[in-house]
Nucleic acid binder design. Structure first.
Lengths: 336, 336
DNA sequence: CTGAAAGCGCTAACAC
DNA sequence: GTGTTAGCGCTTTCAG
């Protein structure tokens, strides 16, 4: 493998000239530049990134930190697309993307410590679900920029984040149902401990009241996000005197169970009951009927997270900020 | 940030002594070691990984190469677990894990070239679906060890790989159905262009013939892996004179459609018809009924891929090898 | 517009 | 057991 010295020798110039050429310095004549570039190509030279990193005291590396043991931190299907968005910008900036698992320990320290202290990373992207105050403090102390995927309401510290515009998403869903003539809309799967769930509820109630419709507490069902809960709670709803003619599922897996309950009750979707859920394209398309969902551009979310991160890397004075990614409605078979 | 010199100065020793201490050389007296370690802790010193990498001409980095645009290269849910297994060993070895997308280009070269030429990576793990001869040649030329996730039947070159023991998996499934009293087992979703599908078919026919049962060509259905294909093909099967009493789905999404077709025909699962599919835990558990599957330990697969890779990194003379990861049957509601 | 030389932080051969 | 020193491959003042 040839190095910068070899190229310099072959070109009859100094290493500085080669270096300047590579880095496109304006102070090199076009002729020498051209000559050097052709020699570089001839010799199949590539700058050694590690040497460059050492001299510049930069790692040219960004870390995506996840909790692989925790299904909730990044749900499988989400992760891949988000990573795709991150990856896109990271390599565009000629950085590498490192993936590491929160719970890994090396040399008696957390991976994060190991990465940061060893100067292995210049920035971190991580899901809000694993972002504790301890991590925030550590990263801030070491001046490592980071961006949270998910709004960070549980933290007292200010933090940069990107999140889905859950409120708006729920609003869109609610308006859509109203537009299609549904009148009595339930909200299934509310979980007041989760930020995104609160936001979705806000959107739902907002859209209703804005349309002159009162929120009916009996139609707002608090429960976890499982198929079985969806089934049980929907069944219950259908046995009340006030039966809804549409339902918004605050979280996605619920809807599978809910649909089952509706079908078993002899009701037809979307004629008798309409349903809108959130995300998870795969489930939405595998179900019978396919599920109308509020869809999030996760690629975009990842991309924006990376963009925010690079702003912070390039200018450490950048202020923390929050960014909401807009949603869109994917009409499928559970709505008219 | 303190460096090795600072530590040496504080300890009143040379940098080599500190270096040897860090790297646990046996030729340092216990006393100095202890003293140095305590100073290291005091000063909160961490070795600069980039400097170390430069001196040792190693990047201490392994790359997971994927095709994020191609759903098939790593299907979403698969990827995460495989990565988890890889990640585990990679960090245990005190390496970092880089993730990169095949189609990214930098400085007019592919990411892979960029990573390899720039000495950014010491080894690569990638799915067989994106492993072309061109990539093999490139990696071999540059002496970069790599491991394929998936057997590489399409290549003439010898390559290290890990794969699911698809044949054995299908055998297990077939034997299970026979054991439970099913007698007329169909094989749905055969795709002769795919290695894993061929292997599964082999296992199926193997188990049948070993049990003294002839393979009935009419019960082997070649089709793609979609919900709709599963529905259509299953419906067809149920309308033939020779109706199966069990079905193995060679690929997973098929089973959703197949189940629908069975239910619509008024048949009861698992009493009238049994069904076993492959993988995809999430779908298998969301379906009504939940689907009995041949399950693969993807974490293990990732871990073994990394293990193979490190053998090659640590000893370049290591010969290429193939490794099959065993499967297990997850009994759910589609079988008696 | 180009070159010489110092230095990034660490390791390892060679001394003692 | 420990220290001295050269060097990994690059960038960047400072000179000219």
């Amino acid at each position: 493998m040839s190095n910068i010295k070899d190229v310099a020798k072959a070109a009859g110039v100094s290493t500085s000239t080669v270096s300047r050429t590579i880095n496109n310095s304006s102070s090199i004549s076009k002729e020498t530049k051209d000559r050097i570039f052709s020699i570089i190509k001839e010799m199949n030279y590539s700058p050694n990134s590690i040497a460059k990193a050492l001299t510049n005291s930069k790692s040219y590396t960004v870390t995506l930190l996840v909790d692989v043991e925790d299904e909730k931190s990044f749900q499988n299907p989400f992760f891949y697309e988000i990573m795709h968005g991150i990856e896109k910008l990271v390599y565009h900036k000629e950085f590498s993307l490192i993936v590491a698992n929160l719970n890994t320990t090396l040399k008696k320290q957390s991976v994060l410590e190991w990465l940061v202290k060893g100067k292995r990373t210049e920035g971190v992207i991580l899901p809000s679900s694993i972002l504790t105050s301890a991590i925030v403090e550590e990263l801030k102390r070491d001046h490592v920029p980071f961006v949270s995927i998910g709004e960070t309401t549980q933290l007292k510290e200010s933090v940069s984040w990107v999140d889905v515009d859950n409120k708006k998403g729920a609003e869109i869903a609610t308006y859509e149902l109203l537009d299609k003539g549904y009148k009595n809309i339930a909200f299934l799967g509310y979980d007041h401990t989760k930020n995104f769930s609160n936001r979705r509820y806000e959107g739902y109630s907002n859209a209703l009241t804005s349309s002159g419709i009162a929120v009916v507490p009996d139609l707002v069902i608090e429960c976890g996000n499982t198929k079985d809960e969806g089934y049980t709670q929907m069944k219950k709803l259908l046995n009340e005197k006030n039966v809804p003619d549409a339902v918004i599922c605050a979280d996605n897996i619920l809807s599978i169970g809910a649909i089952k309950a509706i079908q078993e009750a002899g009701l037809v979707i979307p004629e008798n009951i309409g349903l809108i859920s959130f995300d998870n394209q795969q489930i939405a398309e595998l179900s019978y009927p396919t599920i109308t969902t509020v869809h999030v551009d996760l690629y975009e979310m990842g991309y924006q997270a990376a963009k925010l991160l690079f702003e912070m890397i390039e200018d450490p004075e950048t202020r923390d900020q929050g960014l909401l990614i807009s949603t869109s409605l994917e009409n499928r078979q559970t709505t008219k």
